[in-house]
Design a protein around this nucleic acid. Structure first.
Lengths: 358, 358
DNA sequence: CTGAAAGCGCTTACAG
DNA sequence: CTGAAAGCGCTTACAG
């Protein structure tokens, strides 16, 4: 009953003890069936006794297996936010290249469901070993998912979560909770007494808005559960495909008798509102939004935006890739639901979040 | 002028093209000097043309070199905070074990400078390939550093930074800035008008307090630069080796006519103050402290602590190890100063910071 | 100064 | 069902 002389036992040692060749050891190690039951059991016993653990380097070096991971992500040229998960994905790719992993990245147009479908189909036809995507279009995603299940292709969601799927993992934010947190920050920032607070949901007409609503819900639920602040919450859906629409909407509320004390912008477009504030010299309105785009950082540092909620998108991308590496190569179990931390960024701590590093 | 047919060129290919043996290629690759200049240059030229990059798996597999990394960290049994960097260190150890890295961990007593010195000397005698430590005792650390320099042993600081050293890297927090941030949060949380705010610096008599003072300075500097809040800042140095001293100190200020509107505890002992609040049913005093000890989390969730400032200690440990891996094994340059993000944790986002995962 | 050979711990045909 | 051999891309003596 020795415990671990382990760590340096190889298939050769096992073969010797079991009086078989290393080929046979390999066969039982990989559950290939061309082994008689007696020898299989004998070998298995010795493997356990000796606490064998495979040398991954040798394994990878000897094996000619290549792993291809396909990634489908919204085109970052239309919204720079998507550069961030991509950055993490590429960083992970560099790290696991040595284990014969190759990452193939495809993009789609966030406001064009067909482009999503087409790209997804191309990917499935290419028969990758793993698939990472942002399932932003619900119905189309369901179809993709179905095909993945049929093909037994492991798939990972990031950014958006679809329930009741056999996805290997999900990496993203708890959107409702992030809205709830934003509301708490808002509550700290405004004085007691009656306040008007606006939720702005900026989006293109044809793009999905599911996220935005979840964040909105979280925000509203905070105030509806009786905090010390008496606040009236207003919601504004704004088409930001043309800039003038947002300006008009803001003009309207600022000239009304329900002037905002705070504005919560439910995505990374908060810089558009900040820009409006700057132009019109609006101070003393608390402004909270999402994500560390450089435009947002600028306004945060200027003091026009008070808080940015951030979800470490680079890390989401990075970890998505690694979940597949763990599954395919290390055969390690991976957690299915992985919420990113909901980071609170202010002028005083932005410095330490600017650069993504693993 | 082909660009990269790269990625799969090995020393064999180079040897063939250069009309030499792989042994010779290996010699120029490792700058061993037993090669004539002509062949060296010839081989070098081909290496560049072909864009050779070594296969790290094969390298590690063939090489019998072992790397030992020594770690010296305060004993976690006296202060559970230190479990956290340790966790990260161990996680990193598991990952790079396959590349022949072994991590040796030693601990010292935070309130006993001699134990630090002794352990450090033991480590230096064991002749590791890299050394990670928290240089909490300034003078003693300088001596250790000097020896490292002599031995040409690469060393990494974590938690505490000592300037003007040849340390390979540092991982820790910008303490001044974290105090500054805490002050900003305090400022958001208290109402305008005259307020009394207390800084509590809890420590054992014989332990170092450098950190605490930096955090204090940051906190004070925020308020001294004319914010909208008129606040009077008081500082309390408290010996927490016996619990009663803290209680007495708090009793004193709460029965004075300068009752606190907010308390900033400059380290992880904030739960001691929270405990006092709970016992004495003190509400409406803003309490801000440091670090995600489970005691602190408990009081945060109860709403007794409003904000915890956190510095990702697990990540600091993890990255310290990896900096040495990058340096020793990958021969990659590493950044010298690496500040952790200064995370703001509230009741609303604590959930996503509880578990350390890489 | 240089080459040929063995070996790191596995995988992968191939032969029986 | 099983074994012996070659090979993955390097490193490391050893011989000359």
């Amino acid at each position: 009953m020795k415990k671990e002389a382990a760590a340096k036992i190889g298939i050769k040692d096992i073969a010797k003890q079991a009086n078989v060749s290393i080929g046979t050891v390999d066969r039982v190690l990989h559950n290939r069936s061309e082994v008689s039951n007696t020898t299989r059991e004998q070998v298995l016993k010795i493997i356990n006794e000796l606490g064998y653990t495979p040398n991954l380097l040798a394994k990878s070096l000897a094996s000619k297996i290549k792993y291809t991971i396909a990634v489908l992500i919204p085109d970052p040229t239309n919204n720079t936010y998507w550069e961030k998960p991509l950055e993490g994905i590429k960083a992970a790719a560099r790290e696991i290249k040595k284990f014969n992993f190759e990452i193939q990245i495809a993009t789609f147009d966030y406001s064009n469901e067909n482009s999503f479908i087409e790209k997804a189909n191309e990917i499935l036809e290419s028969n990758p070993n793993g698939f990472i995507f942002a399932p932003v279009f619900f119905e189309s995603s369901l179809k993709v998912i179905e095909k993945c299940d049929q093909m037994e292709l492991p798939y990972v969601f990031f950014d958006v979560f679809i329930e009741n799927c056999k996805n290997l993992a999900y990496f993203g934010q708890n959107s409702v909770q992030s809205g709830y947190l934003a509301a708490s920050l808002m509550s700290y920032s405004i004085d007691k007494g009656t306040n008007h607070i606006y939720i702005v949901k900026p989006h293109n007409p044809s793009a999905p808005v599911y996220h935005l609503s979840l964040r909105e819900n979280g925000f509203i639920s905070y105030f509806s559960q009786g905090t010390t602040n008496q606040a009236t919450i207003h919601t504004m859906d704004v088409d930001v495909s043309s800039p003038s629409i947002l300006v008009e909407s803001l003009d309207a509320i600022f000239s009304s008798d329900q002037k905002p004390r705070g504005i919560f912008v439910a995505n990374s477009r908060v810089h558009l509102v900040a820009q409006y504030f700057e132009k019109n010299k609006i101070g003393n309105v608390v402004l909270i939004g999402y994500d560390l785009l450089h435009e947002n950082i600028e306004y945060l540092e200027k003091g026009i935006i008070q808080f940015l909620i951030c979800q470490k998108p680079e890390e989401q991308g990075y970890k998505s890739v690694f979940s597949l590496y763990n599954h395919l190569f290390l055969k390690k179990p991976v957690d299915k639901v992985n919420y990113s931390p909901i980071d609170i960024i202010m002028k005083e701590n932005i410095e330490y979040y600017k650069n993504f590093k693993i």
